[in-house]
Amino acid sequence: MNSFLQALASGTLTGLLYGLIALSFVVIYRAARIVNLAQGEVLMAGAFTIWMMTLAAGLPTLLGSGLALLAAALIGLVIERLVFRPLIGRPTTTIVLASVALIIVLRGASQMVFGPETRPFPQVLPAGAFKLGPLHLNLALTIGAVLTLVVTEALHRFFMNTKAGLRLSAVAEDHMTALSMGISVRRSAAIAWALGASLSALAAAIYLSGAALDVSVAGIGLRALPVALLGGMESVRGATLAGVLVGVGESLASTYLDRHTSGAMSQVFPFLVMIALMLIRPQGLFGWKVIERV
């Protein structure tokens, strides 16, 4: 029973981290209609930025990380301007392939700049674990989980209630209609990329706090993609909830099934969810259903 509860709790925490990364997919998709497969690499770029601002530049950890979030927003803007803005109006395949190219370019670039070696990542969030009843919880992940919930609620309100957020939603629905109302598609895409890249950097800070950093951390991006799909690419709250579902599923699989499957089950779980979802409910749990009208 205890191991079940423990699996549930740590699954929820990891899941909320997935949820945060999924949010960065969602934010970009909502405004720019781009599934950026390179989101993990954007996260990696954010992670390297945090490392540069803190350990390399010697700034206090929290200040440096805060600055790094701003710098990451800038990286997002640059990617949008150089790669995706010229592709506005192109077929989806073109855009997806561009994001695949971006994966390779970003990995290559960081390999070139930072080298292949693994380096320590600053302890952005406090280390250690704490006891809650029978459960042992990772402190950094718990703080991250709270942050994720706060960010989710803030983003949800932003998209639904503020003028700027509604503009982004309008662009997400239809570029031509948004343009016809004087809403700038470019500006919306730029805002979305800045936000999305910043969220990735925040996720990096939680994910890597006190751990090691190298090019391979980008892999978490692809693990979070099924989460974004499960929640529905347009749904902010859906992303977070789906994160918890996938996180818990993965953690249960790792507790109960991995020993029978040589550790494979927890690895493939998110992707099994993704395939099943594509078959049953392609728009995800809370995504925008295509409204058919006669």
Partner: peptide
């Protein structure tokens, strides 16, 4: 100059209220 496009392009996933608020975005 404001154009109402053909094909009834409401923002279908937003509420009527949100559609109206978008009309007021300027």
């Amino acid at each position: 100059i404001v154009q109402v496009l053909e094909g009834r392009k409401v923002f279908g996933h937003l509420t009527v209220e949100q559609n109206l608020r978008l009309g007021l975005h300027l």
